[in-house]
């Protein structure tokens, strides 16, 4: 039978079941239940739960554990992710896989603690310094949080790239029924590049992001960007909902996609032809789905819990061929289905 779980706790349990037995964290609202759950569960699976002295230390512990070749993760909320950004850049530069979870809250600065989606740019464009990307997944249900944790780890290992799950306070705090994967089903991935002792059987492995020769550094970045191109081709994900005949398509992810879906349902009941595209990967952005939809719909409305950080990506995806509008709330405010419905009705007039 399904169990009722909080998003934060479901993320934690899913990670353990994905074979992650090392968690390094630091308390911050609204993700703290995740760490607390790990503190309770990890000793039971002979794993490590370590409360670090800071978010900076936590991400670097993840860096070390990942360098040693095992699945490791950390979780935090917006201000904490800013602190982790240095470490994420280093991990990208060292080709290290790991899972970072951001249960977003309002910003900038200390901001607030209510749900927000205002770290879209940070996650998809500019977390830390340097030319790099990380995989970004945006679940919108507790079940999807569970499912994406496993995929995020797998793809991180496959492409040797950090993965992020971009959730928010609403998804982290809410409970929904979930079905969990079987425990112990995941086999550890063998990592020949790991720094875990050469046993005098091979050359020494070096995990490093420092390259003082520009042409060497450039060639490494170019190699990484070739991998990014493969990821962009193969790993885009989005859900389409009632888009076939839609004259207006709402584009929303995560919690705001839930709100948008309610609005779409209401309008469909009234015979309005509206649909929803819900990006599941934010990087790679589901350009293909949007491009295809742009060919048969008349306009798009982006709905976010931010000031419209995803709008540019939508516009670029549809080559600015159809109008793209925006509706959002920020600072921890959650748009209501009625708000979104009213906005759509205004656009359809």
């Amino acid at each position: 039978m399904k169990v009722l779980m909080k998003g934060n706790e479901a993320l934690a349990e899913a990670a353990i079941r994905a074979g992650c037995h090392h968690f390094f964290g630091y308390p911050i609202t609204p993700q703290t239940e995740l760490a607390a759950y790990m503190a309770k569960r990890m000793p039971k699976v002979n794993g490590t739960y370590l409360q670090a002295e800071s978010e900076i230390a936590a991400i670097n512990m993840v860096l070390g554990a990942s360098a040693a070749g095992i699945r490791a993760m950390t979780s935090s909320s917006s201000p904490g992710i800013s602190l982790k950004s240095e470490g994420i850049s280093y991990m990208a530069g060292s080709d290290l896989p790991a899972l970072i979870i951001n249960v977003q809250r309002g910003g900038p600065g200390l901001g607030g603690i209510q749900p927000s989606q205002s770290d879209y740019w940070q996650a998809t464009k500019a977390g830390g310094h340097g030319d790099y990307q990380i995989l970004v997944f945006a679940p919108s249900t507790v079940q999807e949080m569970v499912d994406l944790v496993s995929d995020a780890f797998d793809l991180a290992d496959q492409y040797r790239i950090p993965s992020m799950i971009l959730a928010d306070g609403m998804l982290g705090q809410m409970m929904e029924p979930v079905e969990l994967p079987e425990e112990g089903a995941k086999q550890p991935v063998e990592k020949t590049w790991a720094a875990c002792g050469h046993e005098n059987k091979r050359e020494h492995n070096i995990i490093n992001s420092l390259y003082l020769t520009p042409d060497k550094l450039e060639s490494l970045v170019l190699e990484r960007y070739e991998r990014y191109e493969i990821i962009k081709k193969k790993e885009q994900r989005a859900e389409e909902y009632l888009t076939d005949d839609a004259e207006l398509i709402v584009v929303a992810y995560g919690a705001s996609a839930r709100v948008a879906r309610s609005a779409v349902n209401k309008l469909r009941e009234q015979g309005q032809k509206v649909g929803l595209i819900r990006p599941i990967t934010l990087w790679p952005f589901p350009v293909d789905t949007l491009k295809k939809a742009a060919a048969h719909t008349k306009q798009m409305l982006v709905v976010e819990m931010s000031m419209g950080q995803m709008v540019d990506d939508v516009k670029l995806s549809v080559d600015c061929k159809i109008p793209v509008s925006f509706y959002g709330r920020t600072g921890g405010m959650i748009p209501t289905p009625a708000d979104v419905q009213a906005e759509i009705e205004k656009l359809l007039k």
Partner: peptide, 10 residues
Amino acid sequence: DEPIGSPLVT
């Protein structure tokens, strides 16, 4: 009976 949209009851 249907999937829940917004879980925030307003």
